[in-house]
Design a protein around this nucleic acid. Structure first.
Lengths: 155, 155
DNA sequence: AAATGAGTTGGTCTGTAAGCCGGATTCTGT
DNA sequence: ACAGAATCCGGCTTACAGACCAACTCATTT
C-alpha cells in the first residue's frame, strides 16, 4: 500500500493504523506488525510479520563480531516491538518510549504515516523533509563503512 | 524475542526477565538461561540453554594455543552463570559480582535489557547510550586482531 | 439528513515489576 | 569455638503500565 497520511498519537502513545492499510494486511493473512528504528533516519519502520521474519533472520545470521554489523543488529533487532492485531479488526499499536525518542515524536499529536508497499514509515512531520534532502551525517558514514553484504539487504 | 527495555536491579543484585521474553522461553521448552561476559563490550550476554550448548561446544573445540583464543575462552566460558527458571513462572536471575563489575552495573538500579532474537544483552544504560552514538577504539582494534576462525563465530 | 464506518478517547482490569520483610546461611572477630 | 553481624535468598504485597473493551464523535456516502 502506498501513500502519505497524517495520523495522531494519543496521550497513551497509541497509534491506529489507517483502515485502508489494514485491509491490505488482512488480505495477506498477516497476524502481527513490527515497529523498529530506521537505521538511517530519525524515523520508524513498520513491517508485516512475514516481512519481519525474513529481515530479522537475515540480520541474525550475520556474524556478530564486526562492530558495524553489531550496531545494525542493535538498532534494528534490539528495538523491535511486536504487536498482534486487535481481534475486532482495529489495529492500535503502542510506540515504546525508546522509539518515540528516536523519531522525535514526543509532545506531538500528529505524525506522518507513509506507505511504501510492503513497508511503512512513521515520521515526525517536521523531519520528513530530511528524507528529501539526504539525511544525517551518520547516514553518509554508515553508507561508506557498510560491508556490501549489508548494503545489498533491504530494510 | 526482540526489543529494548529498562529494568531494575534490586539491592540484592537480582534482575527479573521481562514477561514477554519469558513467554518466548517457555514456548521453546527452555529450562535454563546462561549469563556471561560479552567479549567485546562492557556488557553481558544472556543465552537460552540450548543456544549456550552450541556456543560453548564451538568455543571449547577451538585449539587453545593462540593467546587470543584462550582469552576468549576464559572470558566467555569461565564466567558463565547458569540459572534454572523459577518453578512458579518467575524468572529472577542473580548477577554475580564479577559480571556486575565487568558490565559496570554496581550502584545502578536501572539497566538496559536488549532482545536480539536468540540472544539478549544487559547493559549499563549509560554505556548503552554511548554505543548507540558511536564506537570505542578498542572495538576496532579487537576486530583487527581477531583470527578469522573466531570472527566467523557468532556470540 | 441519516446511516455506516473509521478514528479517537476514556475507563477498567489484569499481570507484572519491584520493593519489602523475615528467615537462613555465611562470615568475622574475639 | 561461639556469638554477633552482615550478607544472601525466597516469599509476599502493592502500585502501575499496558491490554482490552466500549462508547462517542467525526467524516463520508448515498
Amino acid at each position: 500500500m502506498f501513500g502519505y497520511n497524517t495520523i495522531s498519537i494519543d496521550q497513551k502513545h497509541r497509534v491506529s493504523i489507517p483502515a485502508k492499510y489494514r485491509v491490505d494486511f488482512l488480505k495477506t493473512n498477516e497476524t502481527e506488525i513490527v515497529v523498529t528504528k530506521d537505521p538511517q533516519y530519525p524515523s520508524l519502520k513498520l513491517y508485516k510479520g512475514s516481512e519481519w521474519k525474513i529481515i530479522s533472520t537475515k540480520l541474525q545470521s550475520l556474524q556478530g563480531l564486526d562492530p558495524v554489523v553489531r550496531n545494525l543488529q542493535w538498532t534494528i533487532l534490539g528495538n523491535a516491538s511486536v504487536t498482534d492485531f486487535d481481534p475486532n479488526g482495529r489495529m492500535l499499536i503502542l510506540l515504546p518510549q525508546e522509539l518515540r525518542n528516536y523519531a522525535q515524536l514526543d509532545n506531538k499529536n500528529k505524525i506522518s504515516f507513509v506507505g511504501m508497499g510492503n513497508k511503512f514509515e512513521i515520521w515526525n512531520t517536521d523531519n520528513w523533509n530530511l528524507r528529501q534532502t539526504g539525511g544525517t551525517l551518520a547516514t553518509e558514514i554508515l553508507d561508506v563503512v557498510l560491508p556490501s553484504s549489508i548494503k545489498e539487504m533491504s530494510f
